[in-house]
Amino acid sequence: MSLLDVRDLHMHYATQGNPVRAVDGISFQVEKGQALGIVGESGSGKTSLSLALMRLLPSNATDYRGQVVLEGEDIGDLRDEDFRRLVRWRKMSMVFQGAMNSLNPVLKVGHQVAEPFLLENKGPKDLAKERVLQLFDLVRLPRETVDRYPHELSGGMKQRVMIAMSLVLNPSLVILDEPTSALDVSIQAQMMNLLKDLKRDLGISFIFITHDIALASDICDKIAVMYAGEIVEIGNAEDVLIRPQHPYTRKLLDSIPRLGSNEAPQFIPGAPPDLTAPPPGCRFHPRCPFAFDRCDRESPAIITIEEGHKTRCWLLDKKSP
């Protein structure tokens, strides 16, 4: 049984005109102790997907539906209050993009990390202090950092605080939304090593959201490529990175400037579509160099390439005329 099993998840945003179809029928599984990468350009719906999973719905969210099973329990059926009490932060937590800049500037960071713990356990404060110190050891922050204020810490240290905070109630799954995008490359590498250690030593599962497929390869066992609110390809890291099938995945990989080769990086002409009126058929067809007449008429079926490796593309449909 998978740790997390998501089936046909939707979340749209109401606007004055057509709704924005940010999450439009997403299905995937996350296994225990593994990391799933969600890779896509800005506007592909990857952050909306994480909000839908955490049930942190913006006020204009609409058409929120689908099945979400966490540790065997259908958490989609829970009332909001029960979701908050039983799931959010306890079983599944999140490090938001840029969250390190949302730390409260007038509270010591140790106190902020302890907050969810104090709400949960109304016991003695030393217990909370003990837990915070344990977490700071875990994320390799010096113990005296608990008494520091956010402005006294560097970006990398604040991000470690955010990771400690996400772990305070021992969740089995942590969603990381671009956790390193504001950090310098040398600090980013330190952070990725830390995440690898947490995954290996604590058996935590991650959903790792990023626009950078190379960075995803640094931790992810499985990679899902998102485009215009849909997953266009999903598979083991080996499958997606070495044998990419969808033209979009291939183009994404070609757009990365390689240090070890003279091959010049490519780009994907055009821009992702407006999600209030996505293109008919395959949503990538206007930018796809291989599009043929079927692509703008019919939405592609999900095609299994090999065990666990799926894509949505008519080029790969053997029954295609």
């Binding site: 990391a35 990725m192 690898k196 497929i213 190379a214 960075l215 995803a216 390869s217 640094d218 931790i219 992810c220 066992d221 083991n236 890291a237 080996e238 990175l241 070495i242 990989l253 990365i256 390689r258 240090l259 070890g260």
Partner: peptide, 8 residues
Amino acid sequence: PEPDPANR
């Protein structure tokens, strides 16, 4: 990182 599944 370069996109390499061995990175992880």
